Computed example of a mutant assay.
Amino acid sequence: MYRIKPWEELTIQDDYMFKLIMSIKPICLNLLQGILRVEIKDIRYLETEKSMNARYQGKGIRLDVYVRDDAETVYNIEMQVRMLEGMNLCKRTRYYQSMIDADLLAEGADYDDLNKTIIIFICSFDPFGKNRHIYTFRNLCLEERSIELCDDATKIFLNTKGTLNDVDESVKAFLDYVNGYACDDPLVQEIDEAIQRIKRENEKRVSYMTFAMKMMEERKAGFKEGKAEGKLEGKLEGKLEGVASSIRSMMENLGISLEKAMDVLQIPANERTKYAALVRN
């Protein structure tokens, strides 16, 4: 049975809290500097939870954190708490990249002027099974590994379960914190204090409960629609289309991604490909 997570129990792993914490500029800036091991003078938010509607037939996306630094590099940061079936996680970065590029081009940029982009997925699991805290991907020539494509597109996967200690101590402390282990690292302490402060803000609590109740209502409406369609079209077909309709509705009305909508509806991992195909069609 679906349960609304109490406000007091939210952690950095929960999308709602993650977005609030990453909207605090010093925290977001310090985390980026630690991950990339470079100095960044300043960042500006292009829009927290940026909504990007496909400019061709297809689905839109919402980015958790979307920022640009003083050198015009664009960053997208996402929290991922579930390993998706097959190659869905990797292909999601490909789709996000295409939508970010389309968004930048829509602002009037020429191909030659496309910003450098870095997509960062913070994963509470090891996406590649090599025990690294960080996996960084850029396009290289297979025949001549010394040749990089230089398309200025980078994808980074952070793994909270890593054991190779291949990141800065502060980043490792942050990843441990995502796992539920706090320490006296300054960045971790700043994040933890911010979460406790946010939880005391009644306005934030009310906003969360409103959002959570809308999700609950959409879920109930989807199952009700599924039952109704099941009577008309046959139980199995009606249930499938009813749940798919609920997913579409949640994506549109609540502005959440396909995967997050399926999380709310508690759709098993082995059934998600089927429902994703129904939604896209």
Rank of each mutant, 00 (worst) to 15 (best):
K5F: 05
L104W: 05
E271N: 10
K5T: 13
H133E: 00
P268V: 10
E229L: 15
K274M: 09
E271R: 13
D113R: 13
I198H: 00
T73G: 00
Y2E: 12
G238E: 11
S207T: 10
T117M: 04
L236Q: 14
M22V: 09
K235T: 12
N88D: 09
V243H: 11
K161P: 01
K50D: 06
K161L: 14
E259D: 14
G230D: 13
R62G: 02
F128A: 01
D101V: 02
V188G: 02
K59M: 06
Q80N: 12
G226C: 04
T160E: 04
E169H: 12
W7D: 12
L32D: 00
N179H: 09
C183I: 04
E143N: 12
D168C: 06
L149R: 09
E271T: 00
F174H: 06
D103G: 05
T48S: 11
L10G: 05
M262F: 07
I100D: 01
E252C: 07
D184W: 01
F18T: 02
A269I: 09
E143M: 11
R68C: 04
Q57P: 13
I134F: 00
K220P: 01
L20N: 05
L158E: 01
L232F: 12
Q266N: 11
Y66Q: 03
R44Y: 07
I122H: 02
I118C: 14
R37L: 08
P6C: 03
